[in-house]
Design a protein around this nucleic acid. Structure first.
Lengths: 188, 188
DNA sequence: TCACTATAGTGAGTGTCCTCACTATGGGGC
DNA sequence: GCCCCATAGTGAGGACACTCACTATAGTGA
């Protein structure tokens, strides 16, 4: 039952970080590329955005690699985790899709695989017969519990060297971006 | 001939941002989900990471939508932009792949489409006959130039309300994360 | 000159996520 | 009862990026 094989995928050009005069990190290769991309736009904006995207990609890759080590993908891991934290150990597909910011159709696929692997079961909801509940199985719970300690360790590694304030800042700045991207696109 | 159709894809649960007691943004739905996910780990870490990923996704979606409005995808737009900023108007596929943090194989696909649309031409490199140069065509240049003004406007909208310091902070924090994720995975 | 190894690009196949279209059920009005 | 529309999930098909395996060229070194 082949897993997709994410494996290391050596960091390409980006990744050799340097510190500028004021103590802030930057990536030389990225800065070069950004200058080429930006043209008339603000270079700072581009560079921040590029850094953000690089970080997101690396986080995604790391999560994927971690999950893959336990026979899951990142999405499937997130579903399992969510179900496991539920007192009832179950959730309708639609709710799962919303919570993970994917389309309902995608959740169908994710649950398909999870069910095929015996980690989740589809159960019709007697209260609303359109709805299908995803219920985590014993095997699913075992899988998650086996990953627990491991996960906590990795998390700590990721946030190594971050102060609480920095984490709040990071969240705030990212959500500022989200807000700018939500309302407008052509609005005021 | 058939673009993929990214269109709006209404923001799901996430996106209704609030401000906490100290003036920092947070997303109620996200915080709820994070608490469920986190378990023993640090909630702050999870929430910052979730915010970062949400921002990355929104940026990606916005860029994709923008590019699609001009008959391109985000990747193809980036390739064209890069080529266009090159004095020689060309670059080998491998260099493009590196600069964009994708595998060489993926760049082959991207160039395939660009070439099919007449925006780029493959030209063998006489100096190194293994190498293939991607050269932007007249049509490609026109396409890019038509997007220019539009792009600058969007950029400004994204960074609306950001100070220069905040942009540097954002970059720095993201690259800190990148650095944490680069060396280890299991190292100290 | 003949390996021997590294590099550039591509063919073949996979996984994930998306959109569109469709079925089935729920919940009104009338 | 019936009609109308919204909602939950899925089938079909596509875009994108990845892996592995392969070819062709380059650059050594015996």
């Amino acid at each position: 039952m082949g897993h997709p094989d994410i494996r290391s995928h050596a960091p390409l050009t980006h990744g050799d970080l340097k510190v500028d005069g004021s103590g802030y990190l930057y990536d030389a290769a990225m800065r070069r590329a950004v200058v080429e991309d930006a043209g008339e736009g603000s270079v700072e904006v581009f560079e921040a955005l590029a850094a953000l995207r690089l970080a997101a990609k690396r986080i995604h890759d790391a999560m994927e690699r971690f999950a893959e080590g336990h026979g899951l993908s990142e999405s499937r891991l997130r579903v399992l985790t969510r179900l496991c934290h539920r007192p009832s150990r179950q959730l309708p597909l639609g709710a799962l899709a919303e919570g993970m910011d994917v389309t309902p159709r995608t959740m169908t696929d994710i649950i398909d695989v999870l069910e095929r692997d015996g980690l989740v079961k589809r159960v019709p909801d007697p209260a609303d017969r359109r709805s299908v509940q995803a219920v985590i199985t014993e095997a699913g719970l075992e899988r998650i519990n086996a990953m627990r300690r491991d996960a906590t360790t990795k998390q700590a590694a990721i946030a190594q060297g971050f102060t609480a304030d920095q984490l709040v800042d990071l969240r705030h700045l990212c959500l500022l971006l989200v807000r700018n991207l939500s309302g407008d696109a052509e609005g005021s």
